[in-house]
Write a protein that binds this DNA or RNA. Structure first.
Lengths: 137, 137
DNA sequence: CTCTAAGTGTTATATTATTACATACGTAAT
DNA sequence: ATTACGTATGTAATAATATAACACTTAGAG
C-alpha cells in the first residue's frame, strides 16, 4: 500500500467505546436500548449512560447505526451506512423490527419527495405491521 | 333534536381531562410536550403527569392528535382524525413541525405499500427539512 | 513538538413515562 | 332503583431515557 495518502484515516477508525457499542449492536442484530447496552458493556469498562449515548450519537452520525424513535432503540444499519434515510417495519404484536431494504419503496419515496418539492434532508419512516409469525398465531 | 338515538353518545363526548388537553393542543397548533401541557393546565386542575399521559393516550387512540416520536411531542391532527397514518416535516434548524396533507404523497406511500406487499396497519413518516424561513436566513 | 479537535470519565440532574392502588363515574341490564 | 362493569380519576412513588457541567486525555495535523 502506498503511504502517500494520510488523509481521512481518522474517519475510518472508531474509538474504543464506539467500537464496543457498534460490535454489540452488530452481533445482536436487534434493536437495543441505551441502558441495556450500558449493562451489557459494564464488563468492557462502560460505567455511565453518557459514555453510551456519546458513542451512539457518533455512530448514528456516521450512519453505522439508526435510532428507531418510537421505541427509543438503536439498531445496526444493514444498508451499508445510510446516514440520512431510514425505513423500518415494527411488529405491533411482538415488537420485532426490520430495516426495509426494498429498493422500490425507498426509490419511490425519493420520487414522491421530488415530485412534491419537499426539500428533505433526511427521513425516518416507521411502518407498523403484523409480522408473519404473529399473523399465524 | 330527536331523542330516539341513544347509541354512540359516549364516543362523541370527551371527558374533562381529555377535553382540556385537546383544547390546548388545538389552540396551540404547535407540537407540545407532555410536561409543558401539565404546567399549562395546572390552573385547570391537572396535577400529575399521569393525568396528562392518560388523556394524550386516549386522544391519540381516537386519532384527534398525533405523537411525533422523534421529539416526544404531541400535535393536533389537521387531517380530520387520521388515527393510523401520519406524515410530518420537521425543520432541522428551528424545529417547526407541519403535518403533511399532500394527498399525492400519502396516496403514493399507500401505493408503494401495496406494491411491495407490506402489510401495514399504520405508519409514521418523519421528514426532516430546512423550512422556508430557515433557508432564507 | 505543539496546538487543536475530539473523545473520556465522572457526578449530578433533567426529562419523559409508567406502576400501583384506591376511588368515582356512567350506562346498561336486572 | 340497584347492581354490575368498564372506563376514568387522583395521588404518590418510581422507572426509564437523556443531558449538563467540568476536568482531563488522546490522536493527528502542521
Amino acid at each position: 500500500m502506498s503511504s502517500t495518502h494520510t488523509h481521512s484515516k481518522k474517519s475510518q477508525s472508531l474509538t474504543k467505546n464506539q467500537r464496543i457499542v457498534l460490535d454489540l449492536l452488530q452481533n445482536s442484530g436487534e434493536p437495543l436500548k441505551a441502558y441495556f447496552i450500558l449493562d451489557s458493556l459494564k464488563k468492557e469498562g462502560l460505567n455511565s449512560p453518557l459514555q453510551v449515548y456519546r458513542a451512539l450519537d457518533k455512530l448514528v452520525e456516521l450512519g453505522k447505526i439508526h435510532k428507531i424513535e418510537s421505541i427509543n432503540s438503536f439498531i445496526i444499519c444493514n444498508n451499508s451506512n445510510c446516514a440520512s434515510n431510514t425505513a423500518f417495519t415494527i411488529c405491533e404484536r411482538c415488537g420485532k423490527v426490520k430495516e426495509i431494504k426494498n429498493k422500490n419503496l425507498t426509490d419511490g419515496v425519493s420520487d414522491l419527495v421530488k415530485d412534491n418539492q419537499l426539500e428533505i434532508t433526511r427521513y425516518n419512516l416507521e411502518f407498523y405491521v403484523l409480522c408473519k409469525s404473529c399473523k399465524i398465531n
